[in-house]
Amino acid sequence: MKPGPLYQRDREWHPPALTPDYKTSVSRSPQYSMISLETGIGEITGPVFGHNDIDPIDKDLLSNYAKSGESPIGERIILHGRVLDENARPVPNTLVEIWQANAGGRYRHKKDTYIAPIDPNFGGCGRTLSDENGYYHFRTVKPGAYPWRNWINNWRPAHIHMSIFGTAFAQRLITQCYFEGDPLIDKCPILKSIPDPQAIEQLIARLDLNATIPLDTIAYKFDIVVRGRRSTMFENRPEGN
């Protein structure tokens, strides 16, 4: 049995394109129906990355932009978990990239003008490859909440943006990881673009005391699931036969 096409993406689990409470989606959401395609060779393949592409320090946001001997300000955290597919199989050697605000809620980005200061020792991005069992981990600071222009008084819950490749271009995914216990989670129009409360739960990293480094760094666990693939037990009949 060789792996075949991907399972159909469950569009009701994802946010719809048009979510008026998240205002920017109004003029950026396609209005015609998408054309549904069976995944072909260009969709079940995707870019392959290796250890020559990235450096080990890239996954350590506590040190990848800090001056020597210094550290960013904020709550030191480990963010770790596994990349799995919908069949619960690990996805090894896949690229995971993250970006985030600093502990004050400010991004190192020219378009971010929030009053909270830039941290001279914090870049705010990282990347790593999952290991042979699909595990990944980052070390960083917990990002701060920040205000954004949507309604007059919207605040983003603390979150880390995540980009995942999987092994197929049709598995390509960007999401955001939130933190257990954050009272802003229930109030966020971007998070609430997801209709199913259980799907929202899937985006909330859990405090993981077992993975902490005592007296040093606290830990949160966040598993990522990319689309699974059918096993081709029987080949499809060509159309019309």
Binding site: R9, W13, H14, T24, E86, N87, H161, L173, A199
Partner: peptide, 11 residues
Amino acid sequence: YLKETPSQTAG
């Protein structure tokens, strides 16, 4: 089966 991680805007 597991469910695919829901997408969020790239921001």
